[in-house]
């Protein structure tokens, strides 16, 4: 179950609409809302679904960009540092 947190930046006029859409999504928890950005946590069944979800968020009307600030997928493959 990958768990991630992101900061969603949206145009001011669309802010509340974007907030509403995010709030209504079962895989998304809105953690904090400021005037210019929305902090969310996403939890999805696997790594391909989370990337799809981020693309959907990015495509929401008024969203200018997303920042991934935290990502964990420890039920996936063991992490090996690649030098």
């Amino acid at each position: 179950m990958p768990i991630s947190s992101l900061v969603v930046h949206a145009e001011e006029r669309c802010h509340s609409n974007v907030c509403g859409l995010l709030n209504g999504h079962p895989a998304i928890e809105v953690v904090h809302v400021s005037e210019s950005a929305i902090a969310i946590v996403t939890e999805t069944p696997d790594g391909s679904v989370d990337k799809l979800l981020w693309r959907q968020i990015e495509a929401l009307s008024g969203v200018t960009h997303l920042e991934l600030v935290y990502h964990n997928f420890e039920d996936g493959k063991e992490y090996h540092h690649v030098s």
């Binding site: 947190s5 992101l6 900061v7 953690v31 902090a39 946590v41 600030v69 935290y70």
Partner: peptide
């Protein structure tokens, strides 16, 4: 994850 997002927003 929540803490990281809050820290990123300066909260």
């Amino acid at each position: 994850a929540q803490l990281a997002a809050l820290a990123a927003m300066g909260v």
